[in-house]
Amino acid sequence: MKTTKTIFQDGNHKWVAIVRDPEKPNFLIDTNEYLVTHGGQGLLLDPGGAEIFPAVFSALSAEFDPSTLAGIFASHQDPDICSSLALWLEFNPQMPCYVSWLWGGFIPHFGGSAKTFVTIPDEGADISLDGLILRAVPAHYLHSSGNFNLYDKIAKVLFSGDVGAALLPPGQDGLFVENFDAHIRHAEGFHKRWMGSNEAKRRWCERVSQMDIDMLCPQHGAIYQGADVQRFINWFDELQVGIVAA
């Protein structure tokens, strides 16, 4: 079973990371799911693949009443992001799923009806969670061509999807980045290969540099906090991406 870690809390406004399942088979890439709660409602960010639904559901249930989930945010269309969608919808058929307009016709292959999908335009959109405004921030081509991060300016948390992701070796499964230089080695190959556009990367770095961020939370690997956030942005800005030897 996965564990939940509250990474931000101010009253009933919380960010909970659902992470690290020791029973997960090794052939499945490890993923981080995040729950944002506010005023008794919850938004689940990148709920994960169908195969890890039981682990995510049970961990989330331990922390939060899943029947009060107000929606799902899918950063992009990959199976490890939201192939569990049909199971979450089975639990709560009315729940909306926020997703890039680009994938509005693709993600329904995982499940859902015409009413399920709230599509986000390329420039982004605000998502309200019981009065808390969360901003869907464009991160197109990083790596998906229709890709969004989610920013909570009150908590100063940016859910960055695959940006900042690291494929950590066994045994190195801390929730937060402890040693940036040691950690970033596990992120380098991932970013070089998965991120497709230097121009898109540069725009993203400019955009997020202007945001007040305490924590940058990727969907794989560890969370960057404090000075490591800007350190990561600078590192990413310098990195040449979208190149493959073959």
Binding site: F53, P54, F57, S58, L87, F91
Partner: peptide
């Protein structure tokens, strides 16, 4: 998958 979820978190709703 639902049965696994029930075994891990047997809430009334699930």
């Amino acid at each position: 998958l639902l049965r696994q979820a029930v075994e891990m978190a047997p809430t009334a709703r699930i």
